[in-house]
Amino acid sequence: MGYKKRNNVIVDKSFYFSCDIVNFCKELKKKNEYEIASQLIRSGTSIGANVRESQRGVSTKDFKNKLGIALKEADETSFWLDVIEETTMEIPNDLNKKCEELIKLLVSIIKNS
């Protein structure tokens, strides 16, 4: 069945970012970097999960709260990507860029909601 695009920029971008994170974590595990892969996969996939959950928010406050959690997870993901790049291996360039883009989108949506 697979993922159906939602025509919602933040929902779609966060979903595909989660997929990129899962694939990158597979590479980390091949290099026996299990602990850092575990940290990254938790925070990186949590962004999309919280964004999707926000779409079912019962109020504006609930919506913003879920996006706030997604923003915190995106910031943590950015941290782990920096740690990996500094200590372990190169990361795909677009992962940092995509993460920063998600952070900017989340900040903008939260501020304007």
Rank of each mutant, 00 (worst) to 15 (best):
I10C: 03
L81D: 02
A49D: 07
R42P: 06
L67T: 03
Q55G: 12
E90C: 05
L67Y: 02
E35A: 10
I103F: 00
I36D: 07
L95H: 04
Y34M: 08
L106Y: 04
E101V: 10
T88D: 04
G44P: 06
R56D: 09
I21T: 13
S43E: 14
K97D: 09
L67F: 05
P92V: 13
R6S: 07
F63N: 06
K26T: 14
L71A: 00
N8S: 12
R6F: 01
A74L: 01
S108H: 05
A74N: 03
N23M: 15
I10S: 04
D82M: 11
K30N: 15
G48K: 03
S78M: 07
S54K: 03
N93L: 14
F63S: 07
N96D: 04
I69N: 05
D75I: 13
E35Q: 12
I47F: 01
S14Y: 03
N93I: 12
V22C: 09
T88I: 15
D20V: 06
R52I: 06
K64G: 05
I47L: 01
P92N: 13
V22T: 07
L106S: 04
K30F: 11
W80D: 06
K31E: 15
N23W: 06
T45K: 08
V107D: 11
I91Q: 03
A74R: 02
E27K: 13
E90W: 03
D94T: 13
G48S: 04
C25G: 07
L28R: 12
S14G: 01
I69H: 07
T87R: 08
T60R: 15
G57N: 09
